[in-house]
Design a binder for these strands. Structure first.
Lengths: 195, 195
DNA sequence: CTAAATCTGTACCGTTCGGTATAGATGCAG
DNA sequence: CTGCATCTATACCGAACGGTACAGATTTAG
């Protein structure tokens, strides 16, 4: 334990509070006063613990990926590629509309369009979306190597399609679409894929 | 012609300039100084001609729908529903990545997540998205009535699916995806629909 | 040519933004 | 108990925000 007065809050706890604010209002829409109010700490404590707003957002994004966004990795770990993709899209409908959380996906609507001040956050989220799409692609390529995917299927194009449907579902969720509506979208996409 | 000094600019011209700014930065990311600089007019002129920022955004949105967004209506006017949907998604790939314009769709990323000050713009865009989806649904229902659509197809669910794919494509475009990539998404969606 | 009406430009309003200096409180090491 | 390191809290900073008052310029109506 380092010398000096110990921190009076848990970093993870206040990060979760900050996540809720960024999730609901986006990077630029979340003011520092919103953040400190929700986190229950003062401004200098925030800066001492996390650095500036941009660094806080990075930390929040990482926590988002490892927390609410972790279902993606679990879905892709399904043994068959058919089950993996189906679980991914079906659980997306649940996760994007989970009660008690903001609707939609932080990585998608957290900073889609913003001023120059938000360009870094915008780039962070775009990179995260690319990473998720790359994870889907890697899973499809593995399936192709294992003979679990028809050889005429293009893993790159299919991964982009799946990611695109997911992103559209996130927009729908942010607009208030219900879980059942998103489930319907997922089923229609899966029916078309007929993996 | 009304008495008094005439306006020194064309409302439509400066609306197009404002559209570019809102499209690129979103409602909240577009500062009044950005807008007046791009429009080439002073702040009081803006307020006299359009009212406050929110009213300007409404006017810009309407011009967007009637201008860059008008391809949706034209695509849906195709005689066969198969051609209508195919043209809608294929032209979306072109329009969302058209050179010389901001990538993506104002109605989708213009105000997805924002502070309380942007709630009205957020609601306007959500309503616009619902209207577009309703237009697709109406076209599908017409096709069903005309026998142009298999009776087991649910127009509501299919319209939601098409709108969702479109919204996902807009997110991809805003992240820098190319026209060809979006074309691939459109083709994969159409192949799955096999209308 | 005068009067009324409208637009333009400057300069400013109060508020909120992200970020920080500084002082007091609270802990550990010796 | 003393010294020091770290955290908390108040109060503040300059800059940018959306919005407007006011004076001068420019037009039509009479």
């Amino acid at each position: 334990m380092p010398a000096g007065r110990p921190r009076a809050f848990s970093k993870d706890d206040v990060l979760d509070r900050a996540l809720e604010v960024f999730w609901r209002k986006g990077y630029e829409g979340a003011a520092l006063s919103d953040l400190t109010a929700a986190m229950g700490i003062n401004r200098p404590s925030l800066y001492a613990a996390f650095g500036d707003k941009q660094s806080l957002f990075r930390a929040v994004l990482q926590r988002y990926v490892e927390g609410p966004g972790s279902f993606v990795g679990r879905a892709l770990a399904e043994p068959s590629v058919q089950a993996a993709v189906a679980r991914l899209l079906r659980e997306a409908a649940d996760e994007l509309t989970a009660p008690g959380r903001p609707p939609g996906c932080l990585a998608i609507h957290g900073a889609l369009a913003c001023s120059d001040a938000g360009a870094a956050a915008q780039a962070d989220l775009a990179a995260q979306r690319r990473a998720s799409e790359a994870a889907i692609r890697a899973r499809l390529e593995r399936a192709r190597d294992e003979g679990d995917l028809a050889p005429e299927v293009d893993p790159v194009a299919l991964a982009t399609f799946i990611a695109t449907v997911f992103q559209g579902m996130a927009v729908q969720a942010a607009s208030g679409s219900s879980r059942d509506t998103l489930r319907g979208v997922a089923e229609m996409a899966l029916a078309g894929l007929r993996l």
